[in-house]
Nucleic acid binder design. Sequence first.
DNA 1: GTCAGTCGGCTACCATACAAGTATGTCCCG
DNA 2: CGGGACATACTTGTATGGTAGCCGACTGAC
Lengths: 218, 218
Amino acid sequence: MPRGARAHVLELLRHRIITLQIPPGAPLSENELAAQLGVSRTPVRESVILLAEQGLVSVVPQVGTYVAPLRLSDIASAQFVREALEVASLAEALDKVGDQDVADLRALVAAQRNAAPDAFFPLDEEFHLRLLSISGHASAWRAVSHAKAHLDRARHLSLPLPRQVDVLVDQHEAVVDALAQGRAEEATDALRTHLRKVFDDVAVVRQQHPDYFVDDPA
Amino acid sequence: MPRGARAHVLELLRHRIITLQIPPGAPLSENELAAQLGVSRTPVRESVILLAEQGLVSVVPQVGTYVAPLRLSDIASAQFVREALEVASLAEALDKVGDQDVADLRALVAAQRNAAPDAFFPLDEEFHLRLLSISGHASAWRAVSHAKAHLDRARHLSLPLPRQVDVLVDQHEAVVDALAQGRAEEATDALRTHLRKVFDDVAVVRQQHPDYFVDDPA
DNA sequence: GTCAGTCGGCTACCATACAAGTATGTCCCG
DNA sequence: CGGGACATACTTGTATGGTAGCCGACTGAC
């Protein structure tokens, strides 16, 4: 089997979980996945362990592993982490941003406007990674990405709506405008508003699929 | 072999790496570790994979696994993540803090004053976790902890000095005082100062053991 | 009908065996 | 003496086997 089976399996599982192709609460059998993907149990198991570390699956010894259900407390926690990191980065970026950075960001926003809904996801990721890079903290992307995974999963069903994407692109543009003009408070406020839109999206998804959610443990 | 070998091995390796019992750059053989710890390669390997995900070790396929060297860029990145999260949490905590919280924090600070240098580490962790809990974002501890691991490792050699510990406890007290009195700016500034002390400690360690460090990739 | 006991099948966990690639030390040749 | 090819001893990656424990369905007694 190919030499990088684990990376392949991990990426595939992660994608399927985030896009809700595998719904929250669904059981994951190591044997079944191994057979289905044409690899042995080892790379599958190692991928599952990594996904568990990231909180995307929950493994119960001797019982089974399940895709983590959507918990509002987890979503709030992930949002806190992401917002703290991106806002702190943006505050530093205000002093360091250059013309080339602004041009790159505007090009990304333009691409997002013309992109099909399916192509929006990677462009969105690149936009936020770019924001981190300006302040020189691109290496914090891993932490942001881990948090973002939970948020993207929780709102994934609401994204295909073209209207939603338009709103997001407008918010991106507002951040870039304020950043380019050096308006600190306006920029961070715009970013906060943008990031917190996830709560609205989650509320929509929650109505469509209440079975994906579980109540927070008291 | 004991049930839960992976958790045991992972905790042990992590501790040895953070405390520099295993120095940066040292090779880690899965076979050797398995024999030394009396378990098979499987739990060792799974632990190594998790440590690699956290950036504490670097595994080169078909060549070897090495404890990650100390990179100043990694340390700066970890510091950025930790500072952003803890400061954001503290800002929210100012509106939510109760008398019981302050009492608990003061008790922790008192315990830190009377603690032997070796016992300081867990008390320090509990203090910072407590700060997160006040704002209701205790679940962000995992992200903080991952970042903190790199910082603690980089300054571990400077901590046994009793004088250093006294300074840290004083800084803890300053944060608690400002938090109890509701002085927002003073509290966050005190926390920032406290967290950034790591750079001084790292400079000391760097002089003692320049071989543990590598230059940043240009 | 109801409940206790048991048995079968499933799970993840740990151990082991095999495969494939890399670095190194050695030997031979120029 | 210097350099290159090769054998060997490692490394991690993958595949497979065996074990302990949990869950559920079935059975039998009350």
